[in-house]
């Protein structure tokens, strides 16, 4: 076994973008795209690229379950639990890109390898992937009593799943700011902006540091180092300006430009989610392959 075979459930924006990222992973092999609409763009593209395209949802996948080793779920929080139960019972690894958050949170630059043993791993949310690395970059230097993130995305890059799951987005992101980012308390806000041409994803991290005395320069160095690490899998991840300090408050402004695989570059929110999921699964695959060798 040199590569793990990948299935993707959800042939929408996220699923289709993910397909192109899987193609570039050295330990993963794209195998099956699963949707519920035979005419969906994602299924068409999968078929055109020579992959198995299943238009009968999770049931269809379960009939050909041997075609996959690891399955990404890019449907919705409401559907995920049922998908996960079936897949993990069949011994498949599940990477959850919905905000269902059944399994432990993974943010690659913070805890990439921590959850490899878990049958189900959750990728938090797009806003979480963009901002939690920064919260962690601050909290690894000084204790953070509160961190709040604001994610602004182009309306066109927020599909029906995101829109129906907006409360789940805020809950899941806030929890992960605490659990992975290391803040004592987290809060998340999401804003959709319909401007034309569409706006590039922007994220702001506001954190309250617990101590009055801390080395600002050390915090800045930690943030800059973290930005470089995220850039390894999301090259369009950038700081805007410099981190701003006001007493115990630090504000960090970010912009996330996507790779433009399926969706245009402004939708960095989709890109950072799929890139983080692909990276996590690829590293997990390497470890499993090595263990079985």
């Amino acid at each position: 076994m040199s590569k793990l075979k990948v299935g993707i459930i959800g042939s929408g924006n996220i699923g289709t973008d993910l397909m192109y990222k899987i193609e570039r992973c050295d330990s993963l092999e794209m195998s099956v795209m699963v949707g519920i609409d035979p005419d969906s763009e994602g299924l068409k593209r999968a078929k055109d690229s020579g992959y198995t395209a299943i238009s009968t949802g999770i049931d269809g996948l379960m009939e050909q379950i041997d075609l996959v080793d690891v399955v990404f779920d890019a449907t919705s929080a409401y559907a995920h639990q049922a998908h996960s139960d079936l897949l993990t019972a069949a011994g498949k690894k599940v990477i959850d890109l919905t905000p269902a958050a059944i399994g432990p949170f993974t943010v690659p630059t913070v805890n990439l390898t921590a959850n490899f043993a878990s049958p189900n791993v959750n990728m938090v949310t797009c806003g979480g992937q963009a901002t939690i690395p920064i919260v962690y970059a601050i909290s690894r230097i000084v204790p953070v009593q509160y961190a709040e993130i604001v994610a602004t995305v182009a309306s066109k890059s927020a599909g029906p799943g995101t829109r129906a799951n907006i409360d789940e987005f805020t809950h899941t992101t806030a929890r992960a700011i605490e659990a992975v980012g290391g803040a004592e308390k987290g809060k998340a806000i999401i804003i959709l902006n319909p401007a034309e041409p569409p706006v590039i994803m922007r994220d702001t991290v506001n954190a309250l540091i617990k101590d009055k005395d801390f080395d600002q320069a050390e915090v800045v160095v930690s943030i800059e180092k973290m930005v470089k690490e995220v850039q390894e899998y999301v090259p369009g991840y950038r700081l805007r300006g410099t981190p701003q300090f006001d007493g115990q408050r630090v504000s960090v402004f970010l912009e996330v430009e996507g790779a433009g695989d399926f969706f245009p570059a402004y939708s960095g929110n989709l890109d950072i989610m799929t890139a983080a999921a692909a990276k996590t699964a690829n590293e997990m695959a390497k470890e499993l392959i090595a263990a079985n060798a």
Binding site: N193, R202, G241, S251
Partner: peptide, 10 residues
């Protein structure tokens, strides 16, 4: 749009 107060500082 409404809510983008962070953009002011940016």
């Amino acid at each position: 749009v409404g809510g983008q107060e962070d953009l002011i500082y940016d």
